[in-house]
Design a protein around this nucleic acid. Structure first.
Lengths: 174, 174
DNA sequence: TTGTTTCCCATAAAATCCCATGGTATCCCA
DNA sequence: TGGGATACCATGGGATTTTATGGGAAACAA
């Protein structure tokens, strides 16, 4: 699971270190690489490992070959995505197109979002984090929003009822 | 279950011993670690084991990728969360960002909250405990709040949460 | 050539591991 | 019920490893 936020310098060769704890998540992947694409709804990159990209692929495949939405997503996601291999010290080289989309210069911020992560330019992310945190605090005072969130009750029930799910969680690295 | 409150010193390397009874709760987790994040609605940290973080993840996932509330929670919780591994004597090293958020210096107070726990700076926690106790007393004078609490009548839920209790009931000597 | 990409090595800082120690709670047996 | 032995817990400090990052040499493309 990708969690935590950290900033890393982007050097003159456009190389950036992928956080070590992210690399640990990808340890069992076939390629020792990440997949990244410029996100269609904002100035940031979205990425992850093999599972991440295959989820998009599965979503698109389920729509069928002739579905317009599927065709859009094929181009917007798969068409724009890149596979970036790690060098021996855990860095990747960001293609110019991705750097420009996210407006990255000097420093890039990696934000863990569970099964995927985002890459923002550092200043933008710092501002966004403050904003999101305040929004979260506000949400908690609205009973309707709190109810939508649920409060973890589902999973507790699920795990209680299902040894299989419990084992899955224990196996880790999801 | 995480219960009881205890204070522990934070040394020059920002290491702190996790209470032994908390560690016992985590014994079956896949990673021998805790997850912690700076809480968005106060100067404290919230944490727990694998189940704790997966509950947040499940709540967020259930909302779907394009739900604004979900995006807020991704950044405010998963984006800010850290996994802290135990050293061989049961300590974790608190990242600087977390220490600053909670205003911890010298001593940290662990407060057990059942399926999760909180970490406060020691003085803040002492004040809060008194405050919460008074708030509880006040709640009990409001019939509506008392009704919401229920009064422990839901035995089925209790048993569902505790295999030990379930066994006890099956044995029949209650 | 010239610019770009890939691989490899070097280094400083930071995180982590390992061992030692004092104190406290627990156990056990007379 | 006392009192000693034992195990466990919290904490300190040094040694080792990992991480992030800079820069150079070799391979490749235009």
């Amino acid at each position: 699971m990708f969690i935590s936020t950290s900033e890393h310098g982007v050097d003159a060769k456009n190389r950036v270190s992928v956080p070590a704890n992210y690399r640990a998540v990808l340890r069992n992947d076939p390629h020792d690489a990440i997949y990244l694409f410029p996100h269609f709804s904002g100035a940031y990159l979205e990425g992850g490992g093999e599972l991440f990209i295959q989820q998009y692929r599965a979503d698109i495949a389920r729509l069928g070959r002739y579905d317009p939405l599927g065709q859009i997503m094929e181009v917007a996601v798969l068409g724009a995505a890149r596979r970036l291999d790690f060098d021996s010290t855990g860095r990747v080289t960001l293609p110019k197109a991705l750097i420009e989309h996210a407006g990255i210069s000097g420093k890039a911020a990696f934000v863990g979002c569970g099964s995927r992560f985002e890459i923002w330019n550092a200043e933008g992310q710092a501002a966004r984090e403050v904003e999101m945190r305040q929004a979260a605090a506000k949400m908690m005072q609205d009973p309707e929003q709190v109810a939508r969130l649920g409060g973890g009750q589902d999973l507790a029930t699920l795990v209680g009822n299902s040894p299989a799910l419990s084992d899955l969680l224990k196996r880790g690295d999801t």
